[in-house]
Design a protein around this nucleic acid. Sequence first.
DNA 1: TGCTTTCAATTGAATATTCATTCGGTCGGC
DNA 2: GCCGACCGAATGAATATTCAATTGAAAGCA
Lengths: 190, 190
Amino acid sequence: MEPLAEKKKAILESTLELVKENGFHGTPMSMVAKEAGVAAGTIYHYFDSKERLICELYSYVKQRAIDALQAGDNEDLPYQDRFFAIWMSLYTFYIKNPNVLRFFEQFVNSPYNTNIVEVRHDEFHSLLYLFFEKGIEQGHLRPVNPEILGVLAHGSIITTAKVYGRGKVRLGDAELKQIAQILWDGMSVR
Amino acid sequence: MEPLAEKKKAILESTLELVKENGFHGTPMSMVAKEAGVAAGTIYHYFDSKERLICELYSYVKQRAIDALQAGDNEDLPYQDRFFAIWMSLYTFYIKNPNVLRFFEQFVNSPYNTNIVEVRHDEFHSLLYLFFEKGIEQGHLRPVNPEILGVLAHGSIITTAKVYGRGKVRLGDAELKQIAQILWDGMSVR
DNA sequence: TGCTTTCAATTGAATATTCATTCGGTCGGC
DNA sequence: GCCGACCGAATGAATATTCAATTGAAAGCA
């Protein structure tokens, strides 16, 4: 709760950074400790185990994605504008936080994920779901399972951000707009 | 080369299976050996190290994806039909080989990947690239960077396969068609 | 105020375990 | 008897986790 103890935060941030570069294995607790400027034992004051550390980091970082999602949205705008605004703000979030993107991708496909986490209500997921559900109700989007629309849209964002991250393709604003447009044109009722 | 030594193949298949369940860490060489029915030392007869084993497995498995891609394609069909056929055959491949999907996702985001692999000509990638490039040239698709179109389409397949894999959503043939249609409608010139 | 007590935060060396890798040796065909 | 495939116990390096010891700030007390 409270402003997340100084050291606890440092541990989380260090882990995020190191996992991006070295993966889950490849980042021993001793390395995390060093990077965070604390003793190895201190980590265990805040986290029961490495597994818990990773899982808490996941929640911690996911909240940031939720914030980005909500910050970019404005319920007063026309639906289509909201779609593009959300697309762009999430994209921008991933571009600005490449370590988050990388961590997510690693975590989601790791055995850490199979466990309890995720089971409890997933806010990010339901925000997307509700947004697309509403689009269908209001007649903007095709009547396809909103779950699918949500992951398709999010997938396109992640995918585009990864392409950007590989650095081989330059993506200007115009091109980004084109990509979001592809999704919109495909999903919307014409 | 030659019909891939019996044991070598067993090692690769076992690794694929175990990595799916336990991740890269979490699958010690001893476990691979046991599952494959060989001695630990034998693995090192075929692979220099664990890293090499993982990387070779990646190539091995990727070839299967390429085969699926090509098997589903027929250059004589109209372009749009080819698009749907490719989409479906890759989707089917991932559905039938969930361990491949899982392994890919883990590998691509792991530090193993940053290394040399991938650098040399990536056939899967260029097959997709060429297909979309041709679609643009022939006026079927919007003039967007074919690289982007390729990863968007592939991303939608992977994403859909993952949703299926989570098992929470039932996906009938009609629904799959709808998803591919969304992509097509978005990318094609109307 | 000065003194003691308490206790959570912190340390980092020691522990115990887990694994990748090695290597001396066996086996079967040529 | 030569040789490559194969074996599996032994080795050695990592590394997650523990814990006895230290700190320092707040709380009680006189």
